[in-house]
Write a protein that binds this DNA or RNA. Structure first.
Lengths: 153, 153
DNA sequence: GTTGAAACCGGTTGTCT
DNA sequence: AGACAACCGGTTTCAAC
């Protein structure tokens, strides 16, 4: 079942602020608490809402450096992809990893303390993987925008 | 003030699941509710926890295509950066945007319905910006990992 | 989908150690 | 700083419309 307009309003509110009370949501969309409560449970049950998370300030926690990496694998090797995917899944420094089209194979987003920490990660973890052929690193100098909210029209 | 070990345990739990009750958190770290409650309020007040959000399933909502873009600006133009930053901030398709080191200027993460929607975005929004000199697009074929949780050691 | 009521449970606060 | 207990408010379920 696809969400109707009311469901989409609720989804938009929840992906902005998961601490809104049902009362507050109901007020914003001019409904009473009962249907809002039912709709949220349904959206959770059917998987439109995957999870609720707290977003932390990485700088205050000492994670000042974000790096995007382009990784190319050695295609000659058997099961390169499975090995790589598994290893990446276990690396806490890697927040995002996707297979992409184009000149290289993977796009990664890595978060670490600083340049030295990235050097450690690069040398001892990422380039240490046998399936990795080439890596290009792009250091984030300034974060213009970061959002987890997709546009729900 | 930097978070101590107990604070870090709380932060790790909250960035995994913002719907844990204080009781549940207290149980997991062998404390009673009072100190857990106080610590969370402090972590919020001091900005270690920035916000609480619901994460949606983009595929179920019809947003099947993720594209990473490398954008180069025309440096000759005055105020290219300010113009570009402002325009990007208003584009709902762009979830992440950072200034990066290297061959190009910006790394973007864009989420849209499908190839046709990306084409519309590319032609009428992104490349329509006067400050943009060059764009390279990398389509996500498979998402291996996506997390909002930074490692809090 | 709305209202109202009731039970329940988590958040919140004060007090004591 | 943590434990305990009491209070308050939101959540959840139900019935009736």
């Amino acid at each position: 079942m696809q969400p109707d307009t009311t469901d989409k309003q609720i989804l938009n509110l929840i992906q902005q602020n998961a601490h809104l009370t049902i009362k507050e949501i109901a007020g914003k969309i001019n409904l009473s608490v009962t249907p809002v409560h039912e709709r949220i449970r349904k959206l959770e049950r059917e998987g439109f809402i995957e999870k609720y998370v707290g977003l932390l300030n990485r700088r205050k926690l000492g994670k000042s450096l974000v790096v995007y990496c382009n990784v190319t694998l050695d295609k000659q090797r058997k099961e390169s992809f499975e090995d790589f995917n598994q290893a990446i899944g276990e690396m806490e420094e890697v927040l995002e990893c996707s297979v992409v089209s184009g000149n290289f194979d993977y796009m990664l987003k890595v978060i670490v303390e600083d340049g030295e920490a990235y050097n450690q990660f690069y040398q001892h973890k990422l380039s240490a993987l046998k399936s990795v052929l080439h890596i290009s690193s792009y250091f984030v100098i300034s974060e213009i925008k970061y959002s987890t909210a997709i546009s729900v029209g």
